[in-house]
């Protein structure tokens, strides 16, 4: 039995969530009656191509804008459209491009410190120590607090973005394409860090990605979005050994792969199944 099955109560739930954007007389249904849940300590991946509604989902979960219909629940409690400080602290975001999500005029230390100040975490003198501890937790030396984001590499900046999210001691981390701007070697290290942090802090991840190969190796379960609709949801292993939806199969078959074993998996996956 896996750890996620033991802790089965969903920490996060979306019930019948829809979002329609209206521009003039034009209506765009970005998300259509979506039902999703994630258990405590689990990594739920949301995959799909651009325009599938992944980021719309994340934005509503974070309370940036409300759903047109439907609700989100956190630990069984309804999440209101307007979030108070405590709720905002509970769900944190790591964006794709750390260069645009970190303030270039603030040192790394000041960015982390701000998160601690806003949410009054720890006592004032203790906060500088906490900044150092956060940096070390994401694998950077504490002295980096003095640096500006421009003096860091892409991977280091993303570590800072992760540390800033962790500063708020969240329960849920929304990761919106956290490694797609990184080189493959750096990506592997950041993904490993994310995996370690999740286990150490018992965090729940909502991991948004278009890269199914990454998702295969980090997520416990996967939700596949296509043009605002949830077309398939499964445990990661099942999704890859037996994808049910044609769109999922086309996504898996389009990933550039590097080994013959993967070719083989794809071949068996694509074979038409006779029995239903």
């Amino acid at each position: 039995m896996s750890r996620s099955e033991i802790m089965n109560a969903p920490v996060l739930e979306a019930r019948n969530v829809s979002k329609t954007f209206v521009t003039g007389s034009h209506e765009v249904k970005a998300l259509d009656t979506l039902n999703l849940s994630a258990s405590k300590g689990e990594c739920l991946a949301i995959v799909g191509e651009s325009g599938s509604g992944k980021t719309t989902f994340a934005n509503m979960l974070l309370g940036i804008y409300p759903p047109t219909t439907g609700e989100f629940f956190l630990d069984g409690m309804l999440l209101p459209a307007r979030r108070n400080l405590v709720l905002r602290r509970t769900i944190q975001l790591v964006q794709q491009n750390p260069l645009s999500s970190l303030n270039p005029r603030r040192t790394v230390g000041a960015s982390l410190r701000l998160a601690l100040d806003v949410h009054s975490i720890g006592d004032r003198p203790g906060r500088s120590l906490r900044v150092g501890a956060l940096l070390e937790e994401v694998g950077l030396p504490a002295e980096y607090a003095q640096r500006y984001p421009s003096a860091l590499s892409g991977g280091q900046r993303q570590r800072i973005a992760i540390a800033r999210a962790l500063a708020c001691e969240p329960e849920i981390l929304v990761l919106d394409e956290p490694t797609s701007a990184l080189d493959v070697l750096v990506q592997a290290r950041v993904l490993r860090l994310l995996d370690e942090l999740r286990h150490r802090r018992n965090l729940t991840y909502v991991f948004i990605s278009h890269d199914l190969a990454v998702v295969r190796n980090i997520a416990d379960c996967v939700a596949v979005f296509e043009r605002g609709k949830l077309v398939e949801q499964a445990r990661t292993q099942n999704l890859f050994s037996n994808p049910a939806h044609a769109y999922t199969r086309s996504l898996i078959s389009a990933i550039p792969i590097v080994t013959d074993e993967e070719d083989e998996l794809r071949r068996t996956m694509m074979e038409p199944r006779h029995a239903h």
Partner: peptide, 26 residues
């Protein structure tokens, strides 16, 4: 099939596989 240089090997190892196996420890 048979990357020769240490850097090529590392690059190859770093690519996540759809067959699973977790995230490589580089």
């Amino acid at each position: 099939h048979n990357p020769g240089h240490a850097y090529t090997k590392a690059l190859m190892a770093a690519v996540p596989r759809i067959t699973g196996g977790g995230i490589p420890d580089l």
